[in-house]
Amino acid sequence: MMTRPQRKNNPAALRLRLLDCAATLIVDHGVPALTLENVAREAGVSKGGLLHHYSSKDALIGGLFDMVVEWFGSQVDAAIEPEENRPARFSRAYLQVIANIDMSVPAEKRLAVLILMLSSDPHYCARWNSWVDERLREHHRTDTSPMARTLRLAADGLWLSDLGGGPDSVSSKRGEILQFLQTLDPGPATSTPHADKGGQ
């Protein structure tokens, strides 16, 4: 006697599919396209099924933000060099991840989602700034120099260029920019009591 295979309910997989569909809508059509109805349709579930996992549009957007930041953080962590006293250690990894983003890869389009969210909602800007502040406190011994800040600002500029499809978004040019920035001397990893003596 054959038994019918039972379909297993996988809430985690469904939540991920809902978030991926939400991300795709934002990338392809902009933030205004993110509605519960559109996400449910793209994910192949009812609106009620979506609301079972995310009780409101704000909850869905919050889940999407958390997913993207967690993904970005994991990429940066993987890129951080093992030498704990390497100057600008976190900032180098931050730059490397953003400079190596391939917008043709669906998972990597998540950074476009994040920058769109940050540009449209002060609440998420504040949450992003808190995340960055937390990481900088974690790496305060290596990433407080002006060069470290310059690397992060350059990375943010590349990110913005990607979003607008600017001329520097071409992968070959991005590679040149990354190579140049990584050759710059970031200065000492930690400051000393006389670091600013003489106005230097």
Results as ranks from 00 to 15, higher is better:
residue 22 A to G: 07
residue 28 D to I: 10
residue 85 N to E: 11
residue 176 E to T: 01
residue 116 L to F: 01
residue 130 S to Y: 08
residue 179 Q to M: 08
residue 69 V to D: 05
residue 88 A to Q: 04
residue 171 S to H: 04
residue 49 G to I: 02
residue 125 C to G: 07
residue 141 R to C: 01
residue 31 V to L: 09
residue 104 S to V: 04
residue 64 L to C: 11
residue 139 H to F: 15
residue 42 E to S: 14
residue 120 S to Q: 10
residue 14 L to W: 05
residue 11 P to A: 13
residue 2 M to Y: 04
residue 167 P to E: 14
residue 172 S to Y: 04
residue 54 Y to F: 15
residue 166 G to Y: 09
residue 143 D to I: 14
residue 145 S to T: 06
residue 26 I to T: 06
residue 93 A to K: 14
residue 59 A to N: 03
residue 4 R to W: 13
residue 139 H to P: 00
residue 3 T to S: 13
residue 71 W to L: 14
residue 122 P to S: 07
residue 18 L to Q: 00
residue 17 R to K: 06
residue 42 E to V: 05
residue 160 L to A: 06
residue 31 V to Q: 02
residue 50 L to S: 01
residue 146 P to G: 02
residue 57 K to I: 01
residue 141 R to V: 01
residue 146 P to M: 13
residue 11 P to V: 07
residue 34 L to S: 02
residue 156 D to K: 07
residue 151 L to V: 05
residue 29 H to N: 04
residue 63 G to T: 03
residue 52 H to E: 06
residue 25 L to I: 00
residue 52 H to T: 04
residue 193 P to C: 03
residue 99 A to T: 14
residue 137 R to D: 12
residue 37 E to C: 07
residue 64 L to I: 06
residue 21 C to W: 13
residue 41 R to G: 06
residue 122 P to M: 09
residue 148 A to K: 02
residue 140 H to Y: 11
residue 86 R to H: 11
residue 77 D to G: 00
residue 153 L to N: 13
residue 137 R to N: 13
residue 61 I to E: 11
residue 166 G to I: 08
residue 139 H to N: 08
residue 103 M to W: 05
residue 123 H to S: 08
residue 185 D to Q: 05
residue 57 K to D: 00
residue 121 D to P: 06
residue 176 E to H: 03
residue 134 E to G: 12
residue 50 L to W: 09
residue 128 W to F: 15
residue 90 F to N: 03
residue 156 D to C: 11
residue 113 V to W: 04
residue 40 A to I: 13
residue 200 Q to P: 03
residue 28 D to M: 15
residue 123 H to W: 05
residue 62 G to D: 12
residue 94 Y to C: 01
residue 198 G to P: 10
residue 86 R to C: 03
residue 82 P to C: 03
residue 62 G to M: 01
residue 106 P to M: 02
residue 30 G to E: 06
residue 73 G to Y: 14
residue 9 N to L: 11
residue 197 K to Y: 08
residue 102 D to F: 10
residue 4 R to V: 15
residue 96 Q to R: 15
residue 180 F to I: 14
residue 44 G to F: 15
residue 55 S to G: 02
residue 80 I to P: 03
residue 36 L to M: 02
residue 59 A to S: 02
residue 151 L to I: 06
residue 95 L to Y: 05
residue 152 R to W: 08
residue 142 T to H: 03
residue 82 P to H: 09
residue 38 N to Q: 12
residue 105 V to C: 13
residue 29 H to M: 06
residue 88 A to L: 02
residue 97 V to D: 00
residue 6 Q to F: 14
residue 135 R to L: 15
residue 181 L to N: 05
residue 100 N to C: 15
residue 72 F to V: 07
residue 88 A to E: 00
residue 115 I to W: 03
residue 117 M to W: 00
residue 3 T to K: 12
residue 150 T to N: 07
residue 56 S to L: 04
residue 187 G to P: 05
residue 17 R to S: 10
residue 120 S to P: 01
residue 125 C to S: 14
residue 138 E to Y: 05
residue 26 I to H: 07
residue 56 S to V: 02
residue 148 A to S: 15
residue 191 S to K: 07
residue 114 L to P: 00
residue 42 E to Y: 14
